[in-house]
Write a protein that binds this DNA or RNA. Structure first.
Lengths: 147, 147
DNA sequence: CGCGATTTAATCGTGTGCGATATAATTAAA
DNA sequence: TTTAATTATATCGCACACGATTAAATCGCG
């Protein structure tokens, strides 16, 4: 929200999202450092673990990110040996991102994330689910306005 | 959350926060462009409109940001003529941030933000308040773990 | 008082994010 | 079928965000 008469910054829901998101990244940091991944890189890897061989555009659509953000990020993942980037022979405009064996193997090193994070979140599964659904609904509303 | 057996990225509450936060800044963008402010700069201005003359450390504490982020941001606000940066005579280690007249005047140009944003959020006041409180509670839990 | 420990900002390097623009490939139109 | 419009990435410039380090000022303890 914005500056209604007596609204302080702490009351802005935009700021609660902004600061909570950063807080989450800070919790992930020590876990991801062991894998040599940043948080956005981890998000891309999660997508690829779900379904390998996606285009830059497909990844961007799911993460709500532009190619100007993803291209350098994907090149870093490639340089780290986690993915390969290859043109789609069927449509040379597209670049397909594929996991390497080491990239696929990284998934095993994330098995203990769940426990660490549920601990850090400190809320019940039901409560988390409801909160997540509400945040997603808010995101849909916002994207309708921005997109 | 992380990768429990069948959890997809869309189910991660961390990602819902991450993407919703970005969605919010995209909604703010056209409004803030008129003032020549970025979203983090706007957050600093809101703090200063609430209470003028805060130190870098106080601002960072409320925004959960480091001096390595704030120092260049504040210099840009100074270069834009919105704030002044001056050492605290009582403790020369601290830098006090004070609004200029033009910086104080910017507040008037944000009166229509509230309407735009409530529109974009598309939720009732009561629902927003509850959501915000839950997000803040989550943030507190996370910060206990990271800090 | 003196001096080491602490506090507070600033600096530096790396990695996002995004708007604007460029380039190459594909598709649609005349 | 040559040309015009569209699509998919890439590039560039700017602004965060943070960890690690540095430098200056203050504090605290003998």
């Amino acid at each position: 929200m914005s500056d209604a008469p007596a609204l302080k910054l702490g009351d802005f829901i935009c700021f609660s999202l902004y600061s909570a998101s950063h807080a989450f990244t800070r919790v992930y940091k020590p876990l991801l450092d062991r894998l040599g991944l940043t948080y956005p890189q981890y998000l891309v890897m999660v997508l690829l673990w779900e379904r390998d061989g996606q285009t830059v555009g497909q990844i961007g659509e799911q993460l709500f990110l532009e190619s100007s953000t993803l291209t350098p990020l994907l090149k870093r993942l490639e340089a780290a040996g986690h993915v390969r980037r290859e043109r789609n022979p069927a449509d040379e405009r597209q670049v397909l991102i594929r996991l390497t064996d080491t990239g696929r193997g990284l998934k095993d090193q994330t098995v203990d994330f769940f426990e660490h994070l549920t601990q850090a979140v400190g809320m019940g599964l039901e409560e988390i689910t409801e909160l997540r659904d509400n945040i997603q609904r808010l995101r849909s509303n916002l994207n309708r306005f921005a997109g």
